[in-house]
C-alpha cells in the first residue's frame, strides 16, 4: 500500500515534478504571507491594548480601517489571485496534440485508467494504477461515472475535480522515477477514504521494458486466455521455503480458476483482454497480477489478499459494488486467485 498523504516532508512540499513544484511554491508563499499577516494583526492587537493613546486613536480611526481593512487585503488578495492563477495555469493547459494522454474516470470507489492513442481512442485499459515515463508531461482527461470525485497525486500535480458529464484536464509530470500514491480528494460516498491509486514513474529504459511487457502480455493473453506471461515470484527471501510454482499449480489450478471466473459471474463485471470476460462495470483485470495494490490502492497484492478480497470484499470495503464471494470454497478462491495472478 503506497501512502499518498503521510511521510516527511509532506508530499505536497516534496514535489517530484515541475507541476507539483509550482503548487509547492504557491504553498510556501501562502504560508509566508499568512505569517506576515498574523504578525501585523498581533502587532495591532498589542498596540490596541498596551500602546500609547496617540497610536490607539490612530488605529481606531477611519483612515486605519480604510487602509488596513479594505485597501491592504484588497490589493494583496487580488495580487495573490492573479499570481496564483498565472503560476498554475500550465497545470490545466489544453491538449496540444503531441502529448501522452490518459483518461482517468472516477467511479465509486476506484479509478478507471485508459491509455489513449494520438487520435483519442482507447489503446489499453487498466485500473487504479497509472504508469508514466519520467520527464514527459502527461495530459490526464478526467471524467466521472457517477458523482464528483477529485484526482490528486500530491507528488506530481495539483487537485482537479472529476465532474459527471464533463471532461477536465490535468497535467502531471515526474522528474524522478518512483511510486507516488494518489487519492480521491472530494468526498464521494461511504468508501471515499478507501479510494486510492498508485502512479508509477519509470525512467526511460524501464519504461520501454514496461511497454514491451504490456504488449507481449496482451499478445500472449490473446493466444491463451487462461495463462498470460508468468512474472517473477512475489515471494522474497530464501525461495526454498516456499512452494515452487509447480507445487502451487498443483494446489491451485489457474485453468480451473479461469472456468470458475467465467462461471461464477466475475466476467459480468470484469474484462480480461483476449478472453471471453468482457464486463465493463468493474475494474479491468487484464493486468491485475502486475498491480501493486488491490481494492483501489488499499491492499498489498498477493495470493492472500486476493483470496481475502474475492471472498470477503464487503468486510474490507463495506458497500463497494463487488459482492463477497463467500459461496465459493477455499480451494475455488485459490484457483481464481492463481488465475488472476497470471494476468499481467
Amino acid at each position: 500500500m503506497i501512502d499518498a498523504l503521510w511521510g516527511w516532508p509532506p508530499p505536497v512540499l516534496d514535489p517530484a515534478g515541475p507541476y507539483s513544484a509550482k503548487v509547492t511554491t504557491l504553498s510556501w508563499s501562502l504560508f509566508a504571507l499568512g505569517l506576515v499577516v498574523t504578525a501585523i494583526v498581533v502587532a495591532a492587537l498589542y498596540v490596541a491594548i498596551k500602546g500609547p493613546d496617540r497610536w490607539k486613536a490612530k488605529l481606531g480611526g477611519e483612515r486605519a480601517i480604510w487602509l488596513g481593512g479594505v485597501a491592504f487585503p484588497g490589493v494583496v488578495l487580488t495580487g495573490l489571485l492573479i499570481w496564483g492563477l498565472t503560476l498554475t495555469a500550465s497545470l490545466t493547459e489544453s491538449i496540444r496534440g503531441d502529448e501522452m494522454r490518459i483518461r482517468v474516470t472516477g467511479e465509486m470507489w476506484w479509478f478507471r485508467v485508459q491509455y489513449l492513442d494520438a487520435d483519442g481512442s482507447v489503446a489499453m485499459e487498466d485500473a487504479n494504477e497509472i504508469h508514466i515515463p519520467v520527464g514527459v508531461p502527461v495530459v490526464l482527461e478526467l471524467e466521472s461515472a457517477d458523482v464528483i470525485h477529485s484526482f490528486w497525486v500530491p507528488h506530481l500535480s495539483g487537485k482537479k475535480d472529476m465532474i459527471p458529464g464533463r471532461r477536465t484536464l490535468l497535467r502531471i509530470e515526474a522528474d524522478r522515477a518512483g511510486e507516488f500514491g494518489g487519492v480521491c480528494a472530494e468526498y464521494c460516498g461511504g468508501q471515499h477514504a478507501l479510494m486510492g491509486f498508485v502512479t508509477v514513474a519509470h525512467d526511460r529504459q524501464e519504461w520501454n521494458v514496461w511497454l514491451a511487457g504490456r504488449r507481449a502480455g496482451a499478445a500472449q493473453a490473446a493466444a491463451s486466455p487462461a495463462s498470460a506471461s508468468e512474472g517473477a515470484s512475489p515471494y522474497p527471501g530464501d525461495a526454498d521455503a516456499y512452494p515452487t510454482e509447480a507445487e502451487l499449480l498443483e494446489q491451485y489450478d489457474p485453468r480451473a480458476g479461469y472456468r470458475l471466473f467465467m462461471d461464477s459471474g466475475c466476467a459480468a463485471c470484469h474484462r480480461i483482454a483476449g478472453s471471453d470476460a468482457n464486463g465493463l462495470a468493474g475494474p479491468d483485470l487484464t493486468y491485475v497480477g502486475s498491480r501493486r495494490t488491490l481494492g483501489a490502492g488499499i491492499l498489498a497484492n498477493n495470493r492472500g489478499t486476493m483470496v481475502g478480497w474475492i471472498g470477503d470484499s464487503q468486510s474490507l470495503k463495506p458497500g463497494n459494488r463487488m459482492p463477497s464471494y463467500d459461496v465459493l470454497t477455499a480451494k475455488e478462491l485459490g484457483h481464481i486467485a492463481a488465475f488472476l495472478e497470471l494476468q499481467r
Partner: peptide, 18 residues
C-alpha cells in the same frame, strides 16, 4: 507456507521472509 505445513489450509503462502 500454510498449505505446506497443513495440507488443505485455506490460507495461501504469504510473501514474507523467514
Amino acid at each position: 507456507n500454510a498449505p505446506g505445513v497443513k495440507p488443505g489450509s485455506t490460507m495461501p503462502p504469504m510473501p514474507v521472509s523467514a
